[in-house]
């Protein structure tokens, strides 16, 4: 898996704290919706492009790719809003979309995954309500990245095994005949993974105040 969304250039934008960049991103999105005038939205877009290309020294092709990714939406939205609200309305919507998407792209390209994960851990503290300890976020992410190739590999193996027995059904049946054995296999694998983690003390930092009646099996 390519993790090429981060582009290191060592600029001041890269060195800025991740939390500050995310906060700026939130501010940008609030401004472009709260003050829907062409000068303001256009100004924000210009500032984003200036910061991205000038200060952060990101390759223009990277920003170009982001624009291409939403090109269809741009065209569709421009047509619909053009019919309803005229050229000015269409321009506003298009500029707003570009400003938001590019601002987010600049933050992603200038901030390391680990820094963002740290912010996520901090943001997740309220999830204690759901029984999630923020310190476990790193473990969750590691497990997910580990499971992705395993799930893909086992899906392929099941497909091969069925092809070997002459199974070339298509459509909905093909999906269910692959998905059911796959899910049973990977659920068992996840269970074993959890056992293996527990065997290595994964639940050792559990809150000590756990009532004994909720003992784990």
């Amino acid at each position: 898996m390519t993790l090429a969304l981060y582009v290191p250039t060592g600029s001041p934008v890269h060195r800025a704290p991740a939390g500050a960049k995310l906060l700026t991103l939130v501010a940008v999105s609030v401004v472009v919706f709260a003050v829907p005038t062409l000068p303001v939205v256009g100004g924000v877009l210009a500032a984003v492009v200036l910061v991205g290309l000038g200060v952060a020294r990101l390759p223009p092709a990277l920003l170009g790719r982001q624009v291409r990714a939403v090109l269809w939406w741009l065209v569709a939205l421009a047509i619909v809003t053009g019919v309803v609200g005229g050229v000015a309305g269409a321009a506003l919507v298009v500029l707003r979309l570009l400003a938001l998407v590019l601002a987010a792209a600049v933050v992603t390209a200038t901030t390391r995954v680990t820094e963002l994960v740290a912010v996520v851990e901090w943001l997740c503290s309220p999830l204690r309500v759901f029984g999630v300890r923020p310190a476990r976020i790193g473990l969750l992410i590691a497990m997910t990245l580990r499971f992705i190739p395993l799930v893909a590999e086992r899906a392929e193996r099941i497909r091969e095994a069925q092809a070997a027995r002459g199974g070339t059904v298509r459509g909905i049946r093909a999906w269910t005949t692959t998905a059911v054995p796959l899910l049973v296999q990977v659920l068992q694998m996840a269970h074993t993974t959890a056992e293996a983690l527990d065997a290595r003390g994964a639940d050792d930092d559990a809150p000590p105040a756990r009532p004994p009646s909720r003992g784990r099996r």
């Binding site: 473990l139 590691a142 497990m143 580990r146 395993l150 694998m189 074993t192 993974t193 056992e195 293996a196 983690l197 065997a199 290595r200």
Partner: peptide
Amino acid sequence: FQDPDAQIVH
């Protein structure tokens, strides 16, 4: 465990 794939997570 039998299946090392199941216990390697990092």
